[in-house]
Design a protein around this nucleic acid. Structure first.
Ligand code: MN
Ligand code: MN
Ligand code: MN
Ligand code: MN
Lengths: 219, 219
DNA sequence: ATTATTATTTAGATTTACCTAAATTTTATT
DNA sequence: AATAAAATTTAGGTAAATCTAAATAATAAT
């Protein structure tokens, strides 16, 4: 199956939005891809024709097994390039998403596999997301809780679910990285903000918007 | 100036064909880009509009200074990626051109410069071609003679001017790489074939087509 | 159960990068 | 110089990926 760059971006976004939800909505996909719903409907017809998605008018979109396989290959390339940019070229985690958004479209299994090998076959990317292997298999079963939901007092940062420069730069400023261990001091039910502390640094408060996007595990 | 992938490929090909010649011909460019002359004429109008080329009907094409600057950036990216693929990922020289043809279109000065640094700021690519620096300056003045023209008896291979898999695989089979030193045993004027010898290996004969594409310097 | 709102699709255009076939210009050959 | 051949351009079209505006369907609110 030979996909255009545009088709690949759609497939990847459908894969992302499908998580949890049962069907991906036209509007959600349009928003995710920064395009218009009418364009999504057009593309949905084409991807259905190519048997990459299941789609019926007004019923939303789901990847077929082939579609999912394609998505995992794209995700693999995306995350490997992110690793390369951070580990080898010294980029910081908020800079790599956009670049990987382009590099992911160079389709060469040989290149992908050699890149993986060169990087030591990493299993997570700089944002804590798992990297599918050459067969498209994901290691982790994605059972991550957000800081927002977690009840634990001592936590370790495992991933961030939003890759926007804005969030990542905020986390940089606060000293929150992958692997950072933090203590929850207080939860304020009024606005769902959380007061946290890293080591012996002074405590500070983060909003619900932020805590929702920090994935953690108790320690 | 924001160029499409297609525009970049045109600019790069014009740069390549301009070497030596005074103006690039519509047909030559169509052949180089594996497209039709009519398409070249269309694109010529657009690139002229963008002031990247000088073009008058029936008069051929030349890069403007801005066009040349753009071309050198693309060439820089292309050749740096080729170095990366060979030096870091272990690809062989005949495999990298096609991949670099895609990677070259990721436009990020930061990425390009970090990649260059990561590679130790190489000045020639795996085919012996010089790599423009961040300012677009070429080191070597490109005064290379082809084996076909050279009069010397002992020579060193400096570059290959054709990057086709066919030629490069042929050279691999014959043991001819960058830096290979060879002796010219005989030149046959009938078909311009040349008998050469590498070290103490048995001599063999190469055709004019091949010798034209091997760039050498006397030693 | 209507009605209003929201989501989605269709109709009809636009832009980019191509193409083929025909017309035109340039260049080479009598 | 006239004619033939080759190179180039123009005219008119196509396919992909968008868009806006209008129509339709699904959902929510009276
Ligand atoms: Mn992308
Ligand atoms: Mn990532
Ligand atoms: Mn290219
Ligand atoms: Mn090269």
């Amino acid at each position: 199956m030979n996909l255009s760059v545009s088709e690949e971006n759609y497939i990847k976004s459908i894969y992302k939005l499908e998580e949890g939800q049962d069907a991906v909505t036209t509007n959600a996909l349009a928003y995710e891809l920064d395009t218009k719903p009418a364009s999504v409907t057009d593309m949905a017809k084409k991807l259905k024709e190519k048997k990459l998605i299941a789609y019926e008018k007004y019923q939303g979109i789901n990847l077929t097994p082939e579609g999912k396989k394609a998505a995992l290959q794209i995700v693999r390339r995306h995350r490997l390039w992110e690793c390369f940019l951070v580990d080898k070229l010294g980029f910081s985690w908020e800079e790599v998403h956009e670049l990987a958004e382009e590099l992911e479209h160079v389709r060469s299994e040989k290149l992908t596999n050699r890149l993986s090998e060169f990087l030591g076959n990493p299993v997570i990317d700089p944002h804590g997301d798992p990297i599918p292997d050459a067969q498209g298999k994901l290691g982790k079963p994605r059972t991550q809780t957000s800081l927002h939901k977690s009840q634990a007092k001592r936590l370790e940062v495992m991933a961030v679910s939003d890759k926007s420069t804005a969030l990542l730069e905020f986390l940089n400023a606060k000293g929150i990285h992958l692997g950072t261990q933090l203590d929850v001091i207080e939860r304020y039910s009024f606005d769902n903000s959380i007061e946290i502390k890293i080591r012996n640094q002074p405590a500070f408060t983060i909003s619900e918007q932020v805590s929702k996007n920090i994935m953690v595990k108790p320690i």
